[in-house]
């Protein structure tokens, strides 16, 4: 079976790059971690990628707001490169800080619509497990994925907000990829996101951004109950789906 080349782009402060690399390898991809500073010297690396991930962490120590400087630097280096990859059918994933980067970059939710990831309500960093529903059939990462999915969150700025018309169009265009759902871990919606939104995709369905960490729910024994309970699935099913898509 072919191993899709998965590009993991990092900045100073990225800290779940090894976690997503493990998850991608487990799903059958060939991960490669490339710091922004190296990408600047070899921007063509982006073109060779069959899957792209911007992982979680605290890039640039969250100075000026989570993901702001990473997005700025990425735009200087690759311009519209991320969107172009998506246009060519390359799945792109932004997890937690990566989601914040993709939103700051403007590729999520995309178009003229605007959204943001604001400080949690109630305020403060939260590390807990959540239950997700894979909603979108348009998104390459969630289409056909059975729910509910279990994985942890670990963030302080993950409250997805947008105006009413954006929310309506996201719904109409099937771009709400993942929502927080009821599960044993209360509260269901851990950060006050509008519409319980945990992840959204762009118009092509190729770019997914989500706050939770499916890369920390790869092995059944990583589940808090020691084994993923019957009827539930590990969050890494999303990653497997993306790798399968990249494999073609």
């Amino acid at each position: 079976m072919t191993q899709p080349r998965a590009l993991i782009i990092t900045a100073p402060g990225t800290n779940r790059d090894a976690d997503i690399a493990f998850a991608l390898a487990h799903a059958g991809a060939q991960p490669e971690i490339v710091p922004l500073i190296a990408l600047r010297e070899q921007p063509q690396v982006l073109r060779g990628a069959q899957l792209i991930v911007i992982p979680g962490g605290f890039s640039y120590a969250d100075a000026l707001g989570a993901g702001r400087i990473f997005a700025w630097e990425l735009r200087q280096i690759v311009g519209e490169g991320i969107s172009e990859c998506a246009q060519r059918g390359v799945p792109v994933l932004g997890i937690c800080n990566g989601f914040q980067v993709l939103v700051r970059l403007g590729v999520l939710p995309g178009g003229v619509r605007s959204a943001a990831l604001a400080p949690n309500r109630p305020a403060g960093f939260q590390c807990r497990w959540v239950t997700l529903s894979a909603v979108s059939q348009r998104c390459a990462w969630t289409a056909g994925v059975a729910g509910p999915l279990h994985c942890p969150i670990a963030h302080g700025e993950g409250r997805f907000i947008c105006d009413e018309s954006t929310l309506r169009s996201l719904r109409a265009d099937d771009q709400i990829a993942l929502t927080y759902a009821d599960g044993p871990w209360s509260p269901a919606n851990p950060n006050g996101s509008i519409g319980d939104i945990a992840g959204v995709c762009d118009g092509t369905g190729m770019i997914l951004g989500l706050m939770p960490h499916p890369e920390n729910a790869v092995l059944s024994r990583q589940h808090p109950q020691g084994n993923c309970p019957a009827g539930a699935h590990l969050g890494s099913d999303l990653i497997t789906r993306g790798v399968d898509y990249a494999r073609g």
Partner: peptide, 13 residues
């Protein structure tokens, strides 16, 4: 405890 990221690295069994 929830203020601390106890999940990163995926090794907390």
């Amino acid at each position: 405890v929830r203020c601390y990221d106890y999940e990163v690295r995926g090794a907390t069994a």
